[in-house]
């Protein structure tokens, strides 16, 4: 597999509005790509499209070898997404939420305890209902789900939001470890100081298109494959 993500002239609509307006993007396996841009530029839409949650109405979209236009749901078990919402059930406790998510994705349940320890959710917190946790703690639970699931493609939407300094450092470590293990990461962020140290490449979006792209390969481990198309709206 030469590319983990390959979008070619990909268009996605919300109603009649093109949230992705013919985007070309190629991401190599093991690469960390940061998506930046103003609100409404299309960062979240790129992540949702790659997860098979946003239908591609024209163009090509292949993620982890799955053609999203043919079968968008086929890729989902290999994808982990940390979005604005943590996708957790308030009534279930921390362990129950992580266990449900891992078992649903056919992941290995023996990864759960190490992941929870790593994000600092130990002792009484493990048995606390998620609805009683702070925003930052909920974010840690969602991160533990990703760590325990070990997806091939990590889609992170503002992952640093609500995290304290310690958790931000931990997130960086976790991303680097995932990449070292072969995962690919797409990270949408408004916080360059937090996201750029992790990135191999940065693309800037506006109006559902890529308007600028720059490689940071000299600052981080070289990606396996980089496509350097630059599009100006």
């Amino acid at each position: 597999m030469d590319t983990a993500v390959s979008l070619r002239a990909a268009v996605a609509l919300t109603g009649r509005f093109p949230v992705l307006a013919g985007i070309d993007l190629s991401v190599a396996p093991g690469e960390v790509l940061v998506l930046e841009g103003a609100n409404g530029a299309g960062k979240t839409s790129v992540l949702r499209a790659c997860a098979g949650l946003l239908a591609i109405s024209s163009g090509e979209a292949v993620v982890l070898g799955h053609d999203l236009r043919r079968n968008a749901s086929a890729v989902r078990r290999q994808v982990g997404m940390l979005g604005h919402a943590a996708a957790l059930y308030d009534e279930l406790n921390v362990v129950e939420n992580v266990r449900f998510a891992v078992r649903a994705a056919a992941g290995a349940t023996e990864n759960i305890d190490p992941a929870l320890e790593r994000v600092g959710l130990v002792g009484r917190l493990r048995r606390t209902a998620v609805g009683r946790l702070s925003a930052g703690q909920r974010r840690r639970v969602a991160l533990a789900v990703l760590m325990a699931r070990r997806p091939a493609l990590w889609l992170l939407d503002e992952p640093h939001a609500a995290l304290d300094a310690g958790a931000r450092a931990l997130l960086g470590e976790v991303i680097n470890e995932a990449v070292a293990a072969g995962a690919t990461v797409l990270l949408a962020s408004h916080e360059p100081e937090a996201s750029l140290p992790l990135a191999h490449r940065v693309v800037t979006l506006a109006g559902g298109r890529i308007v600028h792209e720059r490689s940071l390969a000299h600052e981080a481990p070289a990606p396996m494959h980089v496509v350097g198309d630059v599009h100006v709206a």
Binding site: R76, R77, A85, A87, Y89
Partner: peptide, 15 residues
């Protein structure tokens, strides 16, 4: 239950 905190997307993403 599936309308809160993005759990519907979580369920779809779970495979």
């Amino acid at each position: 239950l599936e309308a809160n905190d993005g759990t519907r997307d979580g369920l779809r993403l779970s495979g």
